[in-house]
Design a protein around this nucleic acid. Structure first.
Length: 511
RNA sequence: GGGCCGCUAGCUCAAUGGUAGAGCAAAUGACUCUUAAUCAUUAGGUUACAGGUUCGAGUCCUGUGCGGCUCACCA
């Protein structure tokens, strides 16, 4: 059991927390439950505002204050601000649909409850109100409160009303406060949900079946990464948190589900950065009787459709760069991309010694890898990737780094694979899936060799997967898309933590 | 993991090595159309933590913790 306390020590909230606890006691003493179970039927803030707008427009634009018949509303939310002017007060109330101003007058709510409001209710408390809508002299649509009900007493104050919460660490650790006070954070995460809905809609409309496959796996695979390991007590066995969904989804294609996809979390036991997070959201799509060219079309159409649905445009800005997601996207082979950038032709320098030689001759200083394919990848990452600002498919990777992709018909050292890049970062990966079980076995055996050469990310042998393949998998196109990366591009967010509600942070140990 | 930067009141931020301050929030009072309401008064601090230098440390030095950026690895 964790003994650490994530919140700060009790004394640090200081007097204000104690004062609010005193108010809580006073409320109870007055027979008021500070945490009632329900408020009953209510309208959202948005509905309340709409109710007034409907009445006002029906009355015509010429109406002035007090002349429209004010609709009665009953709504609830968190008190976000408070302006007391003696025997009348203004406040703002917010729920997830918006915020509305409240107007309380002592002569309308009664002296007792008005005093209680002033003395025992704080900014941050959650209240329900009833009243009639009107427009103030300064033009703001407002609830003239006839009755206010405390729904939840808050014991800690909200962050500063003007600047909100800006400390990055606090925003991540106490995301609820970030969401309450920073509109940008709220918008980002609402947009995230809409993006995922749009992705589902896009795939559902094309006959794909959304499925769920194991997160805990006896053998991990489907990507090149180090896994998290956990232990199942009853089975007395190690299990791995999945690094991809791939091999299970392809089993479903073997099982006759010709179009499947899954949106879920993958886990990769690697460093955290602005572009990497150990737990991230991956979309994987498999389509029988399709190849990687079909997956390219699917990818660019999906991005375009999602952007149109969610943003209303396919033109986005990322870090000041204009990006156009409109299909078709540029397609370039990895060989041509490297050739353009460096003058090195990987098809001529087609073994490790000659490739290393070419790299030296071109004056490049790169980490030396264990095999030709890894070295090509290193060369590509160092010289091409960051320049791929506009969406670009990079095609035909070395076979050594692609143990699950089908060999290219004309170039047996390459595979039918693409990665796509937007704003200089890889956003996804796809191939014509390898369905030759004999070749699959030898690929895994080669991966075993890479592992003994020190490659901790080499793909493990998976006999159960080979057995499945031996039953026959139709020619299939597969695609993986990093949803967090997609969110970054669509929201112009340079850090992946800003698009993840609760990013991974070290626990803070309270002493 | 490396490099750079940061950590001061609940929040946002100040403070030549010389008495730790302001705004918001809070408390008390005034104010029945305010909206970053206004005005007056009050309280609030182990300056992340542990050492060191110094007559004197928020400030300089060392270490630790947490975070940000960046490089390395991956998507």
């Amino acid at each position: 059991m964790p003994e650490t306390i994530l919140a700060e020590p009790e004394h640090s909230a200081g007097d204000e927390r104690e004062q609010r606890i005193e108010k809580l006691k006073a409320l109870r003493a007055a027979g008021i439950d500070p945490y009632p179970a329900r408020f009953g039927v209510r309208q959202t803030v948005e509905e309340s505002l709409q109710a007034f707008a409907a009445v006002e427009s029906a009355a015509g634009n010429g109406s002035t204050e007090g002349q429209v018949s004010a609709p009665n509303v009953r709504t609830a939310g968190r008190l976000m601000s408070l302006r007391v002017m003696g025997k009348a007060s203004f406040a703002h109330l917010a729920d997830s649909t918006g915020r509305v101003q409240l107007y309380l007058r002592q002569d309308e709510v009664g002296q007792e409850s008005y005093d209680r409001f002033l003395k025992l209710i704080d900014i941050g408390d959650i209240v329900g109100v009833e009243g009639s809508m009107f427009r103030t002299r300064t033009g703001e649509v407002t609830v003239r409160v006839s009755e206010m009900t405390l729904l939840t007493k808050a014991l800690r104050p909200l962050p500063e009303k003007w600047h909100g919460l800006t400390d990055v660490e606090a925003r991540y650790r106490q995301r609820y406060l970030d969401l309450l006070t920073n509109e940008r954070a709220r918008n980002t995460f609402v947009l995230r949900t809409r993006v995922i809905s749009a992705v589902r809609r896009f795939l559902d409309e094309r006959g794909f079946l959304e499925v769920e496959t194991p997160v805990l796996q006896p053998i991990y695979g489907g990507a090149a990464a180090r896994p998290f390991v956990t232990f199942h007590n009853e089975m007395n066995a190690n299990l791995y948190l999945r690094i991809s969904d791939e091999l299970y989804l392809k089993r479903l294609v073997i099982g006759g589900l010709d179009r499947v996809y899954e949106i879920g979390h993958d886990f990769r036991n690697e460093g955290v950065s602005t572009r990497h997070h150990p737990e991230f959201t991956m979309l994987e799509v498999y389509q029988a009787y399709a190849d990687y060219h079909d997956m390219m079309r699917l990818t660019e159409e999906m991005y375009f459709s999602v952007a149109q649905q969610v943003l209303g445009t396919a033109h986005v800005t990322f870090s000041g760069q204009e990006i156009d997601l409109t299909p078709p996207w540029r397609r370039v082979t990895m060989r041509d991309a490297i050739l353009e950038a460096t003058g090195i032709d990987i098809l001529l320098a087609n073994d490790l010694p000659s490739l290393l030689d070419a790299i030296r001759q071109h004056g490049l200083e790169l980490e030396v890898k264990h095999n030709w394919g890894k070295q090509v990848e290193e060369l590509f990452d160092a010289t091409v990737q960051s320049d791929l600002v506009q969406p670009t498919f990079v095609l035909n990777h070395p076979v050594e780094i692609s143990p699950l992709a089908k060999r290219h018909a004309d170039q047996p050292s390459l595979v039918e694979r693409f990665e796509f890049f937007i704003a200089g970062q890889e956003s996804g990966n796809a191939f014509s899936e390898l369905n030759d079980p004999i070749d699959q076995r030898s690929r895994f055996e080669n991966q075993g060799q890479h592992r003994s050469d020190g490659d901790e990310e080499a793909h493990p042998m998976d006999e159960d997967w080979i057995r499945a393949l031996e039953h026959g998998m139709p020619p299939t196109g597969g695609l993986g898309v990093g949803i967090d990366r997609m969110m970054m591009v669509l929201t112009d967010t340079p850090s992946i933590r800003e698009v993840i509600l609760f990013p991974a942070l070290r626990s803070k140990v309270a002493e």
